[in-house]
Design a protein around this nucleic acid. Structure first.
Lengths: 244, 244
DNA sequence: GTACCGCGTTGACAGGGGTCAATTCCGGAT
DNA sequence: ATCCGGAATTGACCCCTGTCAACGCGGTAC
């Protein structure tokens, strides 16, 4: 049930500002608020790291020492409950920021899903940079506000509707998020397993699987492969996920 | 099902800084970061308002013009779904801030629960004040981060466990929140209805009612009155709400 | 005091989804 | 190409919880 292999090793190296200037997700993340010369200040304390499939960036309960900008791939945030069940709090993609937590230890475990690249900052070093560049704080507030909206959508997804409605809403959300970061929105790519989706939606993984099959039989989606789903009827799927 | 009477009228008046200095929740809200002389700048743009039971502060879809500091009572944030169901996003109490949303319109309806007092700020005026007093932005980021933690707890509550586990977790959360804002933690006061709790936890209100009865029969709580519940066995209730 | 109405409780029943189990599929390694 | 193990699918069954319904309680207005 618990599965954080933490195998392999992550490469880690700092880099100069030129790498930041060509960063494909800069405009939508924390650094987007800065001028090129200000970016230099940040790039000095950034460390680039690569995580292989399933590898943990940090574990729930570890000292909360770093924050992360995801530049490629996907990261799953989850928390283990006393009863052995797992709740997936969210999936973070390129452009997302991980680290909004005031606690001394991480409240969740962050694991790469089929590989991820990140920019890591030591908390205290970022705090120092923020004092020199208050713009960053403004941008961080915008991003925290956006995360809060996502969490509230997640709440609505969990609280309301049948299993099929939840799965429909999940597919539409992934499609929308892919579009926001400049990807293709229709053949939806699912880097995570059925069990990951189930733990995100508060369902059993068998139920998630059954819902995919049912949605396909009803002609709303086409399962091109296990991890690629084409939405054939957006309106019907949206009606199906009759939320908000 | 839809119930936003919006009856009665709210008193509204601005006030001088002396009211702020004696504000009982100042230390835990947005204004807590400011020195008395800085507080004067904020107090100039604050408007004090009182809402009677069930009255709406604002409706989902209204122009997002104001933000609120709650100084007394409780406010319910909720969203209506296409299928006619309602999801309660959260209950906000004295010291809490309402307004973390970057959208042009409110994504939820805010209604007082058995009366509430608030400090209202026009969004654009607050934004101007923030530019002069960047400390406020720092404090707002802390508060948004805290809200995000609450939302993630809510997600865990919704995704995992039986109805009784959810209700147990809810009672413990209310107890904890009351303690944080300086109230009594044990006879837990419930300003909201069973239906409000149900819509918060993604349950039917009959199920919530049955859970209360069952927890009482098992000796974990005592229902002193409909809106007052005494926790008789914290450990057992925590074990029961076997989350996190 | 009394009548009323919203809120809460309790009961009966049916269905959705969790659980357990067997089988198939797919992707990566040899 | 073949093998292997984890992931996904599908089936059977039962329990939890949603739904519908009736009833009781408590506070408010008159």
């Amino acid at each position: 049930m618990n599965k954080s292999p933490n195998t392999g090793h992550s490469a880690s190296f700092s880099f100069d500002v030129s790498r930041c200037l060509i960063c494909s997700v800069r405009s939508i993340n924390m650094c987007g608020s800065l001028e090129p010369e200000e970016l230099g200040r940040l790039s000095k304390i950034a460390r680039c790291e690569t995580f292989s499939s399933g590898e943990a960036l940090f574990h729930e309960g570890d000292a909360n020492g770093s924050v992360y900008n995801i530049t490629d791939g996907a990261v799953r945030l989850s928390t283990m409950l006393k009863n052995g069940r797992r709740q997936v709090i969210g999936f973070m993609f390129a452009g997302d920021f991980i680290g909004f937590s005031g606690r001394e230890t991480y409240p969740w475990t962050g694991e790469s899903v089929r590989g991820a690249k990140v920019c890591r900052f030591a908390r205290n070093e970022l705090a120092r940079a923020v004092k020199e560049l208050p713009k960053i704080e403004h941008r961080l507030l915008e991003m925290a506000t956006s995360d809060l909206s996502s969490a509230q959508e997640h709440i609505t997804m969990l609280g309301q509707g049948s299993a099929a409605e939840k799965v429909s809403a999940f597919l539409l959300m992934l499609s929308r998020k892919a579009a926001v970061r400049g990807g293709v929105d229709n053949p939806v790519h699912l880097p995570m397993t059925r069990e990951d989706i189930a733990d995100y939606l508060g369902l059993a993984f068998e139920t998630v699987s059954r819902c995919f099959t049912r949605l396909e039989n009803q002609g709303l989606i086409a399962i091109e492969s296990t991890r690629v789903v084409r939405i054939k009827n957006f309106e019907a799927l949206e009606e199906y996920s009759e939320d908000e």
